[in-house]
Each structure stands twice: as C-alpha cells, then as structure tokens.
C-alpha cells in the first residue's frame, strides 16, 4: 500500500475536510453538550500547540531518543543472534529439527505476554524494554532466515558446485546471498513488531519514552498530548520501515 502516500493534492480533499470538521466539532459543537470536552476530545489545533511546546522545551526529543535507543539495542541483539542461529539451522537438519520444536512452543506466545516476566526479572526501565523488543523481533528474523535458506533453488547449488564451489564457498557465495531477501523480510517484520511492543512495554513499565509520554497524558488530563504522541509513534514506525526498505534496495540492487 505504498500508494497511500503517493497522493495528488486533489486526493487530500476528504482528509482536509475531516480535520476541519474535527476542529469545528471540538471547538464549537461538542463543548455545548459537555463542559469537560477539552479534556476528552481536543481539537487538531491543540495537538499542534502541544507538539510545539514539547519541541521547544526539548522533552519530545528526549523521549524519542530514549525509545529509539531501546529499539535499536533490542532489535540489533535479536538480529545478531537470530540470523546466525537461523543459518546454522539451515545448515544442519538435525539441529534444526530440535530447535524447531523449541521455537514452535515459544512462538505462539505474543511478545506482549513477555512484559510481566521482563519486569519481574529486570525491573522498570531500559532493560525490560530491550528484553521484550528482543523477544518480539527474534522469532520473525529466525523463521525467515530458515525459510530463506529453504528457498534457495537447488539448481543454483548445483550450478555453483559444477563451477568448482566447495561447501564453504557454496555457503558464502550462493546460500547467503540467495537467502538475503527473505532475511530482510524477517528484519522488516521484526522491526515492526519491535516498535509495537516497545510502546506497550513503555506504557506498562517505564518512566520515559514515547509510550510513557502518551500514558502520562492521561494522568495529566491532556488528551492532545496523547494524540500528538500517537501520531509521532506512527510516523517514526513508518520512517523506520522506509529506512529498512531503502537499505533493502541498496543491499539488493538485483531485485
């Protein structure tokens, strides 16, 4: 659905109308029925103002930085462990059979469900966030790496062997590049999960980060802050995916 963003000006009509309608309802209509309306249903302009305040006092960037750092650490750790593990499973069938059972037992457990045990082991803070992010991304990277190796066409193996490749060269020059597209798919899914789980882990067990920021909005009775936080979280998630897609194109110009 990349087309969602390749828009012509005319296509924005409905979006603009919705925003204008929202502003009118929140400013003039809803307050007539509910005196407390500002604390429940903020107008778009209030969201922009809140964003302006948080940007000028630097708080927004602090929370973004904290969140990004957690994702980068947890996600990198997952990639560093899952890719070699997946490759080893692809190379040795016996090892793979054993590992598959373990993975199949753990995989259906939603990453969110690891948050309480993460909190129990590591307490409130960075480590538990990093832990659940690791868990959230490790399985999709692992399973896609294995699938990538499975998908290497036998004829490419044969072709390399008949051109003089030994086992080691076959691995580096054929299996690895052939599995790479699927590995990148795993990384993209993993990163999307990581970002989603990060928000949950910060909602539940953190005193900083974007997830904490939007939860705090509730305590502060500032719904405009929640809306702003949601939009920023969505935007960063989107940018992260674009980043990986760009990396994908750079890494694999043959696709």
């Amino acid at each position: 659905m990349r087309r969602f963003l390749s828009v012509r000006v005319w296509d924005l009509t409905t979006t603009v109308l919705v925003v204008v309608l929202w502003e009118i309802v929140a400013d003039y209509i809803y307050p007539a029925f509910n005196a407390n309306s500002r604390n429940i249903f903020p107008p778009p302009w209030a969201v922009v103002q809140t964003a302006g305040n948080l940007i000028s006092n630097g708080e927004l960037f602090h929370h973004i930085g904290v969140s990004l750092l957690r994702v980068v650490v947890g996600f990198s750790a997952a990639a560093l462990i899952a890719i070699p593990l997946g490759l080893s499973m692809g190379a040795w069938p016996g090892w793979r059979r054993q590992m598959s059972v373990v993975v199949e037992v753990l995989r259906p457990i939603p990453p969110f469900a690891w948050i309480p045990i993460g909190l129990l082991w590591f307490g409130v803070g960075d480590t538990q966030s990093i832990f659940v992010i690791f868990i959230a991304s490790v399985f999709s990277i692992l399973l896609n790496t294995v699938a990538g190796i499975d998908a290497v066409e036998p004829i490419l193996r044969r072709s390399a062997l008949s051109l003089g490749a030994d086992r080691r060269k076959l691995f580096y020059h054929v299996i690895l590049p052939a599995a790479l597209p699927q590995i990148v798919v795993g990384l993209r899914i993993g990163l999307a999960f990581a970002w989603m789980v990060l928000v949950a882990s910060e909602l539940i067990g953190s005193t900083s980060g974007l997830g904490y920021l939007i939860l705090d909005s509730r305590n502060l009775g500032l719904p405009s802050l929640a809306f702003m936080g949601m939009l920023i979280i969505g935007l960063i998630g989107y940018i992260l995916d674009i980043g990986l897609r760009t990396l994908e194109r750079m890494l694999m110009p043959w696709r």
Partner: peptide, 20 residues
C-alpha cells in the same frame, strides 16, 4: 566422485545467480 569444475554444466533454466 561429485561435482567438479572439470565438468561445468549449462542448465536449461539458465541457473544464473540473480545477485551477480
């Protein structure tokens, strides 16, 4: 005793390495 470059193969399906 196994594949060797001394008997290089041209495949019907080309079998080129797409990343090269």
């Amino acid at each position: 005793r196994g594949p060797s470059w001394q008997r290089a193969v041209v495949f019907q399906e080309h079998a080129l390495f797409p990343w090269l």
